[in-house]
C-alpha cells in the first residue's frame, strides 16, 4: 500500500471539513467540521509514523514521536471542544439562536 492513498484520503477529509465550515451557518456544524479537519491531520500523522517503520532502516523513535504527537493533538482538541461548546451555549442563551452570523456583532 503506497503512502499516497492515505495522503489523498486525508486531503479529501480535510477539504470536506473546509467546505462545511465555509458553507454552513449552524455553529455546531461548523464546530464539527473543525473536528473533522483535526482528525484528518491525525490520520496522516499515524500513516507517516507507520511509513517510518517500514523500509530498509526502521526509524522507531520517529514513529513513537509521531504517535505521541497525535495523542497531544487529541488532548488539545478535547480542551478546545469543552470551551467552544460553553461559548455556543452562552451565545444561545443571549440571542436564542446559534447562527454563526451573530458573531459579526462582536466587533461593535
Amino acid at each position: 500500500m503506497e503512502i499516497k492513498w492515505y495522503l489523498f484520503l486525508s486531503i479529501a477529509l480535510f477539504c470536506i471539513g473546509v467546505v462545511g465550515a465555509l458553507t454552513r451557518r449552524n455553529s455546531i456544524i461548523v464546530f464539527m467540521c473543525i473536528e473533522l479537519m483535526l482528525n484528518s491531520v491525525n490520520l496522516l500523522l499515524v500513516a507517516f509514523s507507520k511509513m517510518h517503520l517500514g523500509g530498509a532502516i526502521p526509524n522507531v523513535a520517529s514513529a513513537i514521536n509521531a504517535q505521541i504527537f497525535v495523542f497531544f493533538i487529541m488532548i488539545v482538541a478535547a480542551a478546545e471542544v469543552s470551551v467552544g461548546l460553553a461559548i455556543i451555549v452562552m451565545m444561545y442563551r443571549n440571542t436564542k439562536s446559534i447562527d454563526i452570523n451573530f458573531l459579526n456583532r462582536l466587533k461593535n
Binding site: 503512502i3 486531503i11 480535510f14 477539504c15 465555509l22 500513516a47 511509513m51
Partner: peptide, 20 residues
C-alpha cells in the same frame, strides 16, 4: 474547497512516495 483539494492533490501526486 474544491480548489484546495485539486491544488493539494496535484502538488502531492508526483512527489516521491514511500510504502506502508
Amino acid at each position: 474547497g474544491l480548489c484546495l483539494l485539486i491544488v493539494l492533490v496535484a502538488a502531492l501526486s508526483h512527489s516521491p512516495t514511500g510504502n506502508i
